[in-house]
Simulated scan of single mutants.
Amino acid sequence: MISAKITRRQLQFLEAVVKLYKETGLPVSYKDIASRLGVSRWTSYDILQELYKKGFLSVKYRPVGGPGRSEILYEPTEDAIERVESANLFAPITTMGKWFVEIQKKIEKLSVDSAINFVYDHIKNEQNSLIVLLYTLALTIILTKVFNVELREMVNLKAIFNSNTYAPAVLMFFVESIYGILEKNKDSEKIKLDLSEFNKLEEIVRKFRDSSSQVSPSFQDRILKLLSALI
């Protein structure tokens, strides 16, 4: 990960590049960023060039007009996406750990149905993919305590967490496994989920799947290491 310092102004421009790039899937023009942020084209160009020199953007060229003329375009690097994601919530992993533990403490005081409702209410309109992942994983960890016996029979979860497997795949396996057990036990005396709550649970899992693809693998690897310490 790039350790270069970034000013608040530069971060504003980097966020705009990342957002526009995710919306279109195409390299971004400094003119588009200027229009989006309401600044001059030259200001936009200068700041994007600074971000390029720091390694947060890569450059491409698109032919325009006559021979030999081209327009400069920018793509965010993985480090840029990670920097924006972490800046939107919390940068240092220690702070993330503290936040995550606090959420766990709130959830573990609730019944299973109340915990599902709590997480659903917090993520149903959430646009920050990282927050969606963390709320879902906090709920999942609490549910591992409910289904601890079933999990031990299925897999050595600790061994998988400590393996070198691709982090997004491990997190997806973790969530899908515990929610699969929950579905199997939804009518048991221990759970007793009604249809409304089970539909919310399915929506949580669906949003987790969608959000997972929006959070960089390197940041998911950090989350995996945090979960490994908590499981």
Rank of each mutant, 00 (worst) to 15 (best):
L130Y: 09
E23R: 11
L230C: 04
S211E: 10
T140H: 01
Y21M: 08
T136L: 04
V28H: 00
N162T: 11
V119D: 01
S218E: 08
F219M: 08
V146M: 06
H122T: 02
S70G: 08
E50N: 12
I47S: 08
M154C: 02
P76M: 07
F100S: 00
Y45R: 12
T140S: 13
V155Y: 05
S44C: 06
V215Q: 14
K106R: 15
A16C: 15
K19V: 14
M172H: 14
L14E: 02
T144E: 04
R62S: 04
F147D: 02
D121I: 00
F147L: 07
V18N: 00
R206D: 15
T95N: 11
D187H: 09
T94R: 03
K19G: 09
S44I: 05
K207G: 01
F90H: 05
K22P: 05
I47K: 07
Q12T: 15
I141S: 06
I181H: 08
D210T: 08
V215M: 13
N117M: 05
W99S: 12
K22V: 04
G55H: 05
K19C: 09
S40H: 12
A87S: 15
I93S: 03
R36T: 05
S188C: 04
L51K: 00
V170H: 02
D121Y: 03
V101K: 06
R69L: 12
I191T: 03
L14H: 02
N88V: 02
V146C: 03
A169Y: 10
P92Q: 04
Q10M: 11
L195V: 14
I6K: 01
T43A: 15
E203F: 00
I191N: 05
A115R: 07
K19L: 15
L110H: 14
F173D: 07
R41L: 05
K106A: 10
A167T: 03
V175S: 11
V149A: 14
V28S: 00
S163K: 15
A167Q: 05
F173V: 08
A115W: 07
L130C: 02
E126D: 02
E15D: 14
G68E: 10
I181D: 03
D121V: 01
Y135C: 00
T7F: 07
K109P: 06
M172E: 11
Y166A: 04
K105S: 05
V101Q: 06
A80R: 00
A87H: 09
N148S: 12
V119H: 03
W99G: 11
V132Q: 02
G68P: 13
G180M: 04
L201R: 04
I141R: 07
F100T: 01
S70Y: 14
F100P: 00
L195D: 11
L20C: 03
L171R: 02
I72M: 10
A115C: 09
K54W: 07
L51N: 00
K207V: 01
R83V: 01
M172D: 13
D121K: 07
V215Y: 14
I142C: 10
R152L: 12
S216D: 05
T94L: 07
Y21R: 13
I47N: 08
F198N: 06
I178T: 06
L224F: 05
K192E: 11
F118P: 01
G25S: 12
Q49N: 13
S86Y: 02
L11H: 00
